[in-house]
Design a protein around this nucleic acid. Sequence first.
DNA 1: GTAAATGATGAAACGCGTTTCATGTCAAAC
DNA 2: GTTTGACATGAAACGCGTTTCATCATTTAC
Lengths: 339, 339
Amino acid sequence: MIILMIRNDYSKTTTLKVKFMTNIKDLAKMANVSVSTVSRVLNNHPYVKEEKRLAVLEAIKKCNYQQNINAVHLSKGKTQLVGVVLPFTDLPYFGQLLKGIANQALEHNYKLIIFQTNYIESRELEALQMLKQKQIDSLIICSRTCNLALIQEYLSYGPIVLCEKVEDTHLAATFVNHYQTFMKALDYLYEKGHRRIGYTLGRKTGTNSHERQSAYADFIKKYQLPNNPDYIITGCYHLEDGAQVVQSIQAMSDPPSALLVTSDQVAAGIVAYCQNQQIAIPDELALIGFDNQPIAKMLGITTIEIPIEEIGKSLFLQAINEEISSIEMEAKLIERGTV
Amino acid sequence: MIILMIRNDYSKTTTLKVKFMTNIKDLAKMANVSVSTVSRVLNNHPYVKEEKRLAVLEAIKKCNYQQNINAVHLSKGKTQLVGVVLPFTDLPYFGQLLKGIANQALEHNYKLIIFQTNYIESRELEALQMLKQKQIDSLIICSRTCNLALIQEYLSYGPIVLCEKVEDTHLAATFVNHYQTFMKALDYLYEKGHRRIGYTLGRKTGTNSHERQSAYADFIKKYQLPNNPDYIITGCYHLEDGAQVVQSIQAMSDPPSALLVTSDQVAAGIVAYCQNQQIAIPDELALIGFDNQPIAKMLGITTIEIPIEEIGKSLFLQAINEEISSIEMEAKLIERGTV
DNA sequence: GTAAATGATGAAACGCGTTTCATGTCAAAC
DNA sequence: GTTTGACATGAAACGCGTTTCATCATTTAC
């Protein structure tokens, strides 16, 4: 039930307020100096006599002055704002990534503006537009659905940083080599005797998914394993998707004996549902998750650790740096009980 | 291991670019109209002859024109930006809240600017400053550590919305009645025969924690139960804090038989650790979580459902509305297997 | 046929800082 | 005693749209 009480009308206050806003010109008058001098004081520039500086400072205090930051932005052509494009804010992976970015932003006195896209291309475009419009100084794209070429068109308006492996471009990026990582995990399962290996993905498209797919393709070619398209299960993002994964496996005549899972969340969902269905892990079904989230530790899920916060940190630093760099982060297999 | 390759220098490009930026004045010249007319076209105002409109539109296309949004902001005194203050971005609760806010922001053509505070007061102050500086039109404070009086000082600069019960003020808010909810849960446990009931909190301070505390105090008074300060365990935010909770309970001579837990995450951590320690749930320890997250469903945790996304939605709507309202959301006990 | 309403359009003011440039002062340098 | 460099300061240009106001052209109304 919702209880609603209307208590006040805000608008009246606003109209009045406007007149009372002091600007730099008023300050100049009050302190008997020029606006230039006020600006110098405001920005801590040298060449202001202590006497005048104090006068300005006093005027500022007296009238509760506050810079209109929009004027500053217009004037400077910079906003100290970095855009962050990410599909969802409620997936732990992106939550942590954002945390890593946010902590650095704080340290460098930048603010973040969030574009939650739900993987809708037009929203990514909006973010790019804002770069062009100079509302943000640079843009971090944590995951995208739009074309790489499109992004490149906007490169001249400010740094754009990606979280995926990009070749031969002027784009900065921090990423893990998902091909290599996935291959390592597959090899590990092979060594452990698995020959029917499946995997789950979030979405079919996207660089990281493609890398995983091509690693898998190379893997089955390498060991001359049969290619079973059923073994690829997409649309797995959340904990609750785990049940569905197990169900679709159960429906197979020749189900996989091991699964490489999108994230630890999904892996946890699988573990839980298997417990429910009395499917023994790892004997009947082996699992490797991704990210090494707390939940993986809790449930003893073998996983691939990805330094998400570190990546976030790196992404941010690239966003505010002129130099374009490409940074690869190392992922690490953490053996626990699900293989 | 990190591989870094410096590929290019961005700065050269920027300096050049500036000269090539077209502005509204240029457009006016190109289309042979006044800047006012260009502005009218840009903003879809009436009273422009189709002929001129087309001329302007063509000029826009021809020179790849893009508004300098900072100039717009300065001129209009609005930014279509809403600030969101939240302590952490990587807690599911806040992730979901943000999702609810973000979805509405999108729908109303607003962007969000995130202030991750880690509960550091100065960062909350920064957000308030940005309201004063007009960088944001309004501010949503999901959780705060600063004084309410401080917030009120900034109220004249724009709407501020809180996510807690506030009395007798000009502050808008959407919240759940944590006192009532907590009491309901306590009563429920009492009915089920529990007399030694403890609870965990994130932090000791904060309105919501206080409400829970005072509900608890009233509860034990009502039933004349002993007041055992050990039964209150603070600092519980994450999954992994669950283990510590169980450990501290195990160390008690007279441990609680039931626990009201901060969040489903923490409850899940407790469940996992209890499984580990072979503590039977609910027989040896009953649990009620909060939020009704997927993990609670997965693990069969009895919990209090809180419509987080709904709250987020409401918070946003309040943020962009002139009217100041106070909206209470209903929480619901969901019985599962941990009581 | 004239008054009134409506449509169109541009000049100029406004929002508000930052930064460059020209000018002036004063002390150290030779 | 004059040159030079460092220190100080203000006027003005600049960044770029939005909006008001005045003006003029058409319609519509009666």
